[in-house]
């Protein structure tokens, strides 16, 4: 598998739980948590971290810009 491995870090304090990131993720990595943050929103989290390819779709569409995206080549993380 030469696919890139990715990961996201969500700023759960800023996240408003709109869920737009869940619709643009091509590998269905992101879901909304059952827990809520300080504002009462169900924040986004990586429910399926192994599938993330680091495409940054979620980062660029997030209206509150609270997602940081990381990507490493598959070999580098073995």
């Amino acid at each position: 598998m030469a696919k890139a491995k990715g990961a996201i870090v969500v700023d759960t304090v800023k996240c408003k739980g709109c869920g737009v990131c869940t619709t643009v993720c091509p590998t269905k990595v992101i879901e909304l948590a059952t827990e809520v943050n300080g504002k009462g929103y169900h924040y986004a989290y990586m429910a399926n971290p192994d599938a993330c390819i680091g495409c940054s779709n979620c980062g660029i569409i997030c209206p509150d810009t609270c997602i940081t995206v990381y990507r490493a080549k598959a070999g580098a993380t073995a």
Binding site: G6, A7, M46, G54, T65, C66, V69, Y70
Partner: peptide, 22 residues
């Protein structure tokens, strides 16, 4: 799962919040 912490490093950032946003 152990992969995640090896990916989350400053040199692997592909998208982050711009400093022009407050």
């Amino acid at each position: 799962m152990s992969d995640i912490n090896t990916i989350i490093k400053p040199e692997n950032i592909v998208y982050k919040r711009t400093d022009v946003l407050s």
